[in-house]
């Protein structure tokens, strides 16, 4: 099923956020994605961040720094985002497995250069955290709005990743082709 992208953003201004922080291993005993829902980013080490807070609850987009999703291969990390209606992550770079898992689920792991992330974080500061992100996969474009102004960025996406997003994920794509 094709996903909806964009919406209110939450900023996690730290590099190397790992999948143990996104969903601690003790919850990997669940066998449904829905059961993961309350535990999103529970062990994130980031000053001022509240995993139970309104900001995360309302977020539909995560914006972060380098090497997002490093560590364990657990797809529970994209899943815990998925069941919380967060279908878009925008970061400077990703760990390979996390990035692939996002696209395999038909979700977006958008890569933007550091300067663009810096601009987004500046926008967050001046708009007191209230930033709304619009994403067009077709145009490969992100528009962020806050404090009455907007910033827009183009992003690269490989034809394969785009095909996965359009197909709704890797199982759909592979099943039709192999």
């Amino acid at each position: 099923m094709k996903k909806i992208f964009g919406g209110p953003a939450i900023f996690l201004d730290r590099a190397d956020i790992n999948t143990d922080e996104i969903i601690p291993a003790k919850y990997l005993t669940e066998v449904t994605k829905e059961a993961l829902k309350p535990y999103c980013l529970e062990d994130l080490k980031l000053e001022g961040f509240d995993p139970q807070g309104e900001r995360l609850k309302n977020a539909r987009v995560i914006i972060s720094r380098e090497n997002f999703g490093c560590g364990s291969s657990r797809e529970h990390a994209p899943w815990v985002f998925e069941v919380n209606d967060i279908h878009t992550v925008i970061a400077e770079s990703y760990a390979r497995i996390f990035r692939q898992n996002m696209f395999n689920c038909g979700m977006l792991a958008i890569e933007l250069p550091k300067a663009d992330i810096d601009t987004l974080i500046a926008l967050e500061k001046e708009s007191n955290g209230e930033v709304e992100v619009e994403v067009s996969v077709q145009e490969q474009k992100v528009v962020a709005r806050g404090n009455g102004r907007e910033e827009s960025f183009n992003f690269d996406i490989s034809p394969f990743d785009k095909a996965l997003v359009n197909a709704g994920g890797w199982v759909e794509f592979a099943d039709a082709r192999y």
Binding site: E75, N104, C105, G169, W170, V171, Y178
Partner: peptide, 28 residues
């Protein structure tokens, strides 16, 4: 499992993947 890279010790290409890659691997 991310530590699948261990098996490269034998001169193999072994990679950790998520559950969706695993699922397609099992099926196809």
């Amino acid at each position: 499992d991310s530590h699948t890279c261990t098996h490269g010790a034998f001169g193999a290409f072994a990679a950790g993947v998520g559950t969706t890659d695993l699922e397609v691997g099992i099926l196809k």
